[in-house]
Design a protein around this nucleic acid. Sequence first.
DNA 1: TCTGCTTGGTAGAGGCGCCTACATGTGTGA
DNA 2: TCACACATGTAGGCGCCTCTACCAAGCAGA
Lengths: 248, 248
Amino acid sequence: MCDATTEEAQPLTGSLEDYLETIYELVRDQKVARVRDIARARGVRSASVTPAMRRLADLGLIRYVQREYIDLTDEGAAQARRVYARHQALTHLFTDVLKMPAALAQTDACAMEHSLSGEGLDYMVRFLEFLRVCPESQHFLETFHRCSLVHHNGESCALRCTVKEAHQGDIDREQLTIASLKPGQQGRVAQVLGASSARRELLNMGFLPGVLVELERVLPEKSAIYLRVQGFEIMLRLEQAKLVQVSR
Amino acid sequence: MCDATTEEAQPLTGSLEDYLETIYELVRDQKVARVRDIARARGVRSASVTPAMRRLADLGLIRYVQREYIDLTDEGAAQARRVYARHQALTHLFTDVLKMPAALAQTDACAMEHSLSGEGLDYMVRFLEFLRVCPESQHFLETFHRCSLVHHNGESCALRCTVKEAHQGDIDREQLTIASLKPGQQGRVAQVLGASSARRELLNMGFLPGVLVELERVLPEKSAIYLRVQGFEIMLRLEQAKLVQVSR
DNA sequence: TCTGCTTGGTAGAGGCGCCTACATGTGTGA
DNA sequence: TCACACATGTAGGCGCCTCTACCAAGCAGA
């Protein structure tokens, strides 16, 4: 399933892509790129930069004369723009659509930009273009952001989006959660409530929207609940089970 | 900007995460995980698997007795689920929202799952939850997919989404493109038309929604156009410039 | 039982990418 | 002019991750 072979021939390692991108940004912002600045920007020692520059020069992507300023060749600039475009598209998605904090969007985009394929970029940008071009997408995005905020604040969303915060047993009774399943019953995860740490723990366990869960058994004292999720048995504490809303 | 230091302490390398995930899937699907299967699934030689197993065993993530079946410890299963959750969330986004072909969604998700932070996952899932829970999101998504299809097919979208395919000079005159800018004028990229190769080339150059471009000069024969994009001068052929729709 | 195939493990090499420690240039101010 | 600071480069080391080539265990059939 997760084959290591990459579809697109990718001659550049992630590290070299990072160096190239850093040089691109430095040339753009400071006009010149020096070893010291590259090291600082990338968070590595200067000694690590030199061999990287040699490799980039060997690949014909930069003009590199020892102790001189470093400059991109046309091919290098093209490659840098390719990486940078992925960075931008991801950042755009993360900040403007998902409303991540800027710093988080940056770090995640920086990490993921190396592994997004050209075809994947195409599809992602198609979505971003739609959001920009199609008028009704504005309303949709606003609704999402409002509901998302509401979700954070613990209030009820007036837009039939059934978003509620879990105040320790203050969960809407109408809403089905894992805790309200009977043994043998199945449900499909709709959303996970709770403060970010509790929520994140549940997400890491695989309680994502659309995932099918089956309640196996409840411990006598009702302190713990055993589920079958994707072929595996998973145990939840009751408080956790109450946070996972499901539909049947 | 692109600092190498990661926010979350990440003791596992991407490679080890992949091994862990592979074992997880094998145990789930085939009940047992053998070296041979792991190697096949990951696309590496068996000889590469052994040292990886030793490292995972040292980390307490798998039970590994030489020449016996390999099994996950509780901690290993938890870690595997953590990686797998990222994989699933990304796959979900790619297939159900962005409508990527399944194979592409898999490979891109496989590559990106290692670099998505826990916080990033949280935001992404918030969006996926909204799509599942909020009724109006269904209509929105359908509109996007319809427009996206139309975009592919080269027809006009009836929903005021101004999506058109470029039939070599058959571009809607009302729609501003880079080719219709005057020297000194600026525009903001709305969307890029064209067949996937031409479009992808432009995306790689950085013509993404929202990017500010300024037309600098047009070559006398009008065969080429020079732009200023993010501090850099970029040259486009006229056919290319006609594919980039802008708003002012 | 012997032969030989499959499976798994060992040894050693090589590339990458980082590090520390040290060497070399280059320019500036005393 | 000398000395010092600072930027840059070199040498060597280490961990990761893969490879090839070879070795060992175990099972299957003649």
